[in-house]
Design a protein around this nucleic acid. Structure first.
Lengths: 252, 252
DNA sequence: GCTTGACCTTGACGTAACGTCAAGCTTTAC
DNA sequence: GTAAAGCTTGACGTTACGTCAAGGTCAAGC
């Protein structure tokens, strides 16, 4: 089934102008352009639009949404994550309800007004950043799952390659190198090159790669199994920071 | 108790820049400016900010929010209305959850994808307009409550004045005048002047007055007791349309 | 008292995400 | 064929801040 731009806009409660804007910025492209020059959208685009609207409603910037949509998470798993986000938003509204009820009680003299209680559930900015980071971490976890699926022989081959890199990371950390220093950045570059060679990592576009690498850095720190590769949480934080510095400079 | 700009910004999960912007546009003014030029906010401003944030989260434009805040609804009643809006938003998130679950089921082949079901709960634009109109109607209802509190003698005096105006409205409608015509607009102007003379109507600012008058027009049509003043629903719609046309041209 | 860093101000330019409008081609219904 | 609705591209405008510069204020530490 196909929809014209106005039909899909109406379904989604948005405007054709919005959809043209999304096409212009590459966020959501139509299924096809008819011989009349008209845009036509299909079911895949409809599902993508749903995800875009969900994340936009959370206050997420469109470029960040683009990174999330481009991430290599299987669609069903991505939608499961959307459900989690919606459930949390549901909870946050409940908190706001409690905050307004608190204000009402205070106005009726039944309670003393507590400023912190009034605004529970109102904090969006941190939540936005957190959502993007969690998405990156989720995609990273999905990507690392590839590793455990490797045969023993292949794992051994990759293992040797990785172990050299990990040893160099540990040596650099123990030598007191800085994440942004020459050694740290050379290692970060090697690390990224290695990541590119791993099948299934979302390294096709600079945006997706950046998000992935940053999420991976957080995973290294938070997950003890990964941190152990770098001599512990502090060594992992060193790797994370070096990688973050590297992607801040842009990816080729 | 007082808060500095950063303190209140942190409480509300927003920025000092936002608060300065709100001060500039007259939406939320600080309690006082210190001798150092710093802005300080009090409890009243805190409560107002809560309401602003709630409406902003609903997607309402700041100028519309300004009209709602300026409306002559008693604060507790206004907060009760906020609770209603939050509850509805809570419901809408639940609908979105259902929509995503539907998409998931369709992806697993358990259901056929239905485009309308996917996007339930996503329609914000109409909801925004509706919220503003409901607020106007609520304020209008509160204002009309003043009438029933009048003593018999006072009611009689106002009654005569109003009855002349109503008769003129009915005559104009029966004569086939147009809402935007010369007669209709002259009557609308008389009507607005009369409204200005009624204590408690929110006519101090153009924005609040516009919202109030539009809400009142809707009330005339929907409530049979008011419609009867203008010869029935069609006559009331004539009055509503003439008033709407009048306020569209701006209020002095 | 001096220094430093945090806090606040105003002024002004820039940005993100569209809204609005113009001009013109295409499609649909009568 | 005609008129209205639908769609396009191009471009300017709007809203709501974000960011930065320059500079005054406050608080803590020496």
């Amino acid at each position: 089934m196909e929809w014209s731009i106005q039909e899909i806009a109406k379904l989604a409660g948005t405007t054709s102008r919005t959809l043209r804007h999304y096409d212009e910025i590459g966020l959501l492209q139509p299924l096809r352009i008819g011989p009349n020059g008209y845009r036509y959208y299909g079911e895949v685009e409809l599902r993508t639009l749903q995800r875009i609207m969900l994340l936009r409603d959370l206050g997420m910037a469109l470029d960040a949404i683009g990174r999330v949509i481009a991430s290599d998470l299987e669609e069903r798993e991505a939608l499961a994550m959307h459900l989690t986000l919606l459930t949390e938003q549901h909870d946050r509204i409940a908190q706001q309800i409690a905050g307004v009820q608190h204000t009402l009680q205070a106005l009726e003299g039944k309670e003393e007004l507590m400023a912190e209680t009034m605004f529970e559930g109102f904090d969006h900015a941190e939540y936005r950043d957190e959502v993007e980071q969690r998405w990156g971490a989720k995609a990273a976890a999905a990507s690392e799952a590839w590793w455990s699926g490797l045969s023993d022989a292949n794992r051994h081959s990759w293992q040797a390659q990785v172990e050299t890199l990990n040893a160099d990371w540990r040596a650099a950390f123990e030598a007191g190198e800085k994440p942004s220093g020459t050694v740290g950045q050379a290692l970060a570059q090697r690390h990224v090159a290695w990541l590119r060679s791993v099948p299934g990592t979302p390294m096709q576009s600079a945006g997706a790669a950046k998000s992935y690498i940053e999420g991976l850095g957080e995973l290294y720190v938070c997950d003890e199994r990964f941190a152990a590769n770098y001599g512990g949480a502090e060594g992992a934080a060193f790797v994370r920071d070096a990688l973050a510095e590297h992607v801040r400079g842009g990816l080729a």
